[in-house]
Design a protein around this nucleic acid. Structure first.
Length: 216
DNA sequence: CTCCTGGTTA
DNA sequence: TAACCGGGAG
């Protein structure tokens, strides 16, 4: 089976077994963007607690959050871990929104992907995965999100070497898949679900995994 | 105890 | 390349 057939086939197998993921969890593009920063190397259940704190404080808008003292912000997002660093990163992102689009996040949709991606990557604390998550899930740009789960799954299925570079791994998928926002959205979501429940770090539960037929 | 939808700094 | 950031859940 060719590499392209494997990548396409895995998508079909995951979707058939798990169904639609309805990602990203979040009511607004701004909430999705903040969630993307908060979930860096962090369990989503912890991120939910932080987002609930922000919601209860009525702070899920760029301007309201920017006007907040950074220490108060850090305290509110404490359950998500790395809270001091993440408060700074969120603040950097808010400053970017203020300067670039006057807090109007959706105005970034008027940019071209090639133009806006480097701008978001220029924010200290936003790396390639977080940037792509914001671009795909908050702004509907056709960019494929890869993460630690993607690398692990690709490695275990013989698609990539361990420690493959972010953009090489991304190209592996984007060179094969149709340029389709909905598919990029669903594919990454399915990979995360597989990663959490089957393709675990220490030992994969391959015998019951929906992707077991794609092992070498 | 390990792991979590990373990224920056030294 | 490695240290660092970190609370919460299993």
């Amino acid at each position: 089976m060719s590499q392209a057939d494997t990548i396409l086939g895995m998508y079909e197998a995951m979707h058939a077994a798990l169904g639609d993921s309805d990602w990203w969890p979040g009511e607004t593009p701004f909430e999705i963007s903040i969630g993307a920063i908060l979930t860096q190397n962090t369990n989503w259940t912890n991120v939910e607690k932080a987002i609930d704190n922000l919601k209860n404080a009525d702070l899920l808008s760029p301007k309201a959050m920017h006007d907040l003292d950074i220490h108060e912000l850090a305290e509110l997002i404490r359950p998500a871990g790395y809270y001091n660093i993440k408060a700074r990163r969120i603040f950097n992102f808010l400053k970017f929104l203020k300067n670039e689009v006057s807090y109007n996040l959706l105005a970034l949709k008027e940019y071209s992907l090639e133009n806006v991606r480097p701008k978001i990557l220029g924010v200290n604390g936003i790396g390639p995965e977080t940037a792509d998550a914001i671009l795909l899930y908050a702004l509907d740009f056709p960019t494929f999100v890869v993460d630690a789960y993607t690398a692990r799954l690709a490695h275990r299925h013989g698609l990539a070497f361990e420690g493959i570079d972010y953009h090489e791994l991304q190209s592996l998928f984007m060179d094969v898949l149709p340029q389709d926002v909905a598919m990029y959205n669903e594919y990454h979501a399915l990979i995360v679900r597989i990663g959490k429940d089957w393709c675990k770090k220490k030992q994969g539960l391959c015998d019951t995994c929906p992707l077991k037929h794609f092992l070498e």
